[in-house]
């Protein structure tokens, strides 16, 4: 391939991913607000545009036109860097995510590793933001976020290793390809050969909720305890970037879950059925957004856990279970494979 086409392709993908991340962040806020409203028997945003569909744009315009206040005494470089650092890795991660067989920017051999590596940068950004704010609530929040993310990264990685064992690859495309042939072949279900599939999925889902700081594990934000946690002192697009980063991370978590457990772009139906059985990016997006909707539902249904029970859940339940799960899966692979 010639260099010009390569550069062109790169730019297209980069612009596309930034737009995708931003549009997702904006419209997931709308989905969240509208969803919350209907769960709570309200109307939700409805003034700006039909069904309030232009509300995210209005919010974005408002955030961008506000002053970015840097409080006195904060650690300036860190304070400014932190929101950027939440957004950049999120966009980087999109590079490796295969939305379909053809729509992917880079097909890495170790795509999974790269996603997890970049995902853990997010913690650093939240820690920096909290620490640099020089606000006690923000510092408490940063400490919470760090302990929470470290605690949940471990079971998450163990689960990922389990999937890698089953698929025999760290390449996301190959992991998806291993699940071809309808719903019965998905890693989610025991019919795939690994009867621990559902447990693996549940642990992974809980971990991804905790990793993205979503309710009921939103201890970093905990608005009734810590005001707004690490972004208490942020205004304007500083806050906006944290916000977008949060939603971008949710999208990534949902996409990763789709890839690892739900057969990526493959249809749940056998390929022999015309149209519905064909694999396409539509299936990927449907699965991803259903997962995101599940995350939204959970947020508006459950109260928040305490930090201690959160950490106990990880260290005392999820980590032993995921280790056991890894061993059992490894044994199964050895026996059956």
């Amino acid at each position: 391939m010639d260099l010009g086409i390569n550069v062109f392709e790169m730019v297209i993908y980069l612009v596309g991913f930034i737009a995708f991340a931003a549009a997702n962040a904006a419209y997931l806020v709308w989905v969240e607000r509208k969803g919350a409203a209907h769960i709570q028997r309200r109307t939700g945003p409805k003034e700006v545009g039909p069904y309030g569909l232009l509300q995210p744009l209005a919010d974005g315009a408002k955030l961008m036109s506000k002053q970015f206040i840097i409080p006195a005494g904060v650690d300036r470089p860190l304070f400014i860097l932190a929101p950027i650092l939440t957004m950049v890795p999120a966009i980087m991660i999109f590079v490796t995510i295969p939305f379909s067989e053809t729509i992917l920017a880079r097909d890495f051999n170790i795509g999974l590793l790269m996603i997890l590596a970049f995902a853990s940068v997010n913690v650093l950004a939240l820690l920096m933001g909290g620490w640099a704010s020089r606000n006690k609530y923000a510092v408490i929040s940063a400490a919470r976020v760090v302990s929470q993310n470290i605690a949940y990264e471990i079971p998450m990685l163990i689960i990922v290793i389990t999937i890698v064992l089953i698929s025999g690859s760290m390449n996301l495309t190959e992991i998806v390809a291993g699940q071809a042939g309808g719903i019965l072949h998905w890693n989610l279900l025991p019919t795939n050969g690994n009867f621990l599939g559902p447990i693996t999925f549940i642990i992974f889902f809980i971990c991804s909720l905790a990793e993205t700081n979503r309710a009921p594990f939103d201890l970093g934000e905990a608005e009734s305890e810590l005001i707004a946690g690490f972004h208490t002192e942020y205004s304007s697009m500083g806050f906006g970037l944290f916000f977008m980063g949060e939603y971008a991370n949710i999208v990534i978590a949902a996409a990763l879950t789709t890839i690892l457990f739900l057969g990526g772009w493959y249809s749940p139906l056998p390929e022999s059925i015309p149209y519905a059985g064909a694999s396409s990016v539509v299936w990927f997006l449907v699965k991803m957004y259903l997962l995101i909707w599940l995350v939204v539902l959970i947020r508006w249904t459950y109260p928040r856990v305490t930090l201690w029970s959160l950490l106990n859940l990880s260290w005392k339940i999820l980590i032993p279970f995921s280790l056991f799960n890894l061993l059992a899966s490894a044994g199964l692979v050895k026996l059956l494979g």
Partner: peptide
């Protein structure tokens, strides 16, 4: 009270 615990939805039901 449930709002204090992080559950937002019951507040709106109670207000209803």
């Amino acid at each position: 009270f449930v709002l204090d615990l992080g559950g937002f939805t019951p507040l709106l039901y109670a207000f209803d």
